[in-house]
Design a protein around this nucleic acid. Sequence first.
DNA 1: CCAAAAGTGTTGAGAGTACACCCATGC
DNA 2: GCATGGGTGTACTCTCAACACTTTTGG
Lengths: 230, 230
Amino acid sequence: MQYQGHYKNAPKHYLAVDCVIFGYENYELKLLLHKRPIQPQIGGWSLMGGFCGEKEALETAANRVLRQSTGLKDIYLEQVQAFSEPDRDPAARVISVAFYALIRIDKHDAGKVDEMGARWCSLDEVPELIFDHSDIVEKAKERLQMKASLELVGKELLPDEFTLTQLRRLYEAIYQRELDPGNFRKKVLGLNVLERLNTKNTEESKKGAFNYRFRPNSEELNGHERIIKI
Amino acid sequence: MQYQGHYKNAPKHYLAVDCVIFGYENYELKLLLHKRPIQPQIGGWSLMGGFCGEKEALETAANRVLRQSTGLKDIYLEQVQAFSEPDRDPAARVISVAFYALIRIDKHDAGKVDEMGARWCSLDEVPELIFDHSDIVEKAKERLQMKASLELVGKELLPDEFTLTQLRRLYEAIYQRELDPGNFRKKVLGLNVLERLNTKNTEESKKGAFNYRFRPNSEELNGHERIIKI
DNA sequence: CCAAAAGTGTTGAGAGTACACCCATGC
DNA sequence: GCATGGGTGTACTCTCAACACTTTTGG
């Protein structure tokens, strides 16, 4: 710390992370929200968040928040951006760095969620959120759409085995529009990252649909192929 | 500030902005760098940066840094992301939020640049940078490529009037590969955001090429059309 | 049998690519 | 004349979107 003197006139700031936690259930994309337990705006719907520790990377802080609220480790996390309007939090000047996370709802710890007073909300009916959290959700959604258009998402949101219809419904939830079943199937299989299993899922159709899984060591897509035109 | 008590146990952090300033000159994309005037790593090549003020939005801080180093106001700026590895700056724990800026080199204040000990470096031959600034440049470049593929950039980097060849060369510099002149021309004109002027530029060819400019109030592209497949 | 999802095939429109080709002009 | 960039046209390929059609099976 021998040089810190050069910085000592610089102001210091509260620094928080806010996590937009996406999950997929019942053909819907959902968001994990909770009622803010502290002032200001106590009781208002809020993203999961927390302060960044003294010597903690923001990514680490976001992972900590996720573990606390879902019990999960090793979650897929991506930084969205920093939100720094001076008055975004009326109580104090807090800069927040937003992340989005993709969660398998079937795997998460429902107990932890209850304990935090949290709830999964359908993305179509997100309640009014505190501060600028609605803006944060909007940006996170854009980023997720961008990611899903550049590579096949699903590993993080679906069970290990899934049908192509389930995958298509996930994409329909992400883009909030319908996709042609036949064309989606051809496009996705052409990417060569899925592997058909010999088992069938008969829960969602009479005929039964083959299960697929992500090929274990597929070297992902070549470059920047688009899955879905957006 | 009546609620600030809830936050008082949270640590406070130094918060900086670092600007990746892109300019275009002599068929090359360039970066404005300077020799760091303070310890640590005094004299090392560095991005333009500064601390975020007490009540200042990060975007405002970045604009301030830009004005100080180029004399320009109202610059195109986009946030890249926050960099927060605890040891990224060996002197103190500083979180940095990176921005990239697009500058018209012909318009900027060369005097200010000199005064700051700054230099325009070709993007192909960026020297070794301090801290994690090379990572920051890499991310900024990706973001610029993404932006340029989604909408026609140039307003921010080229003179008011320019030829299609100049625009193509800019894109070649951004993507670091050659583009077919005929195809580029057709694609770009099809976007309907350029307006042909009656003047010609004869400096770069014997025949002379028509000047174009961005149509004053064109409502940009429809959705997410791709200019260049990347 | 019927409805509904699974899965395959066909077709046409449009975009991207790789060129060939003429034009204008400074040297 | 010829090299160079400006500018246009063409032809092939590929992808995407729309939709027809067959399969399977529970009710």
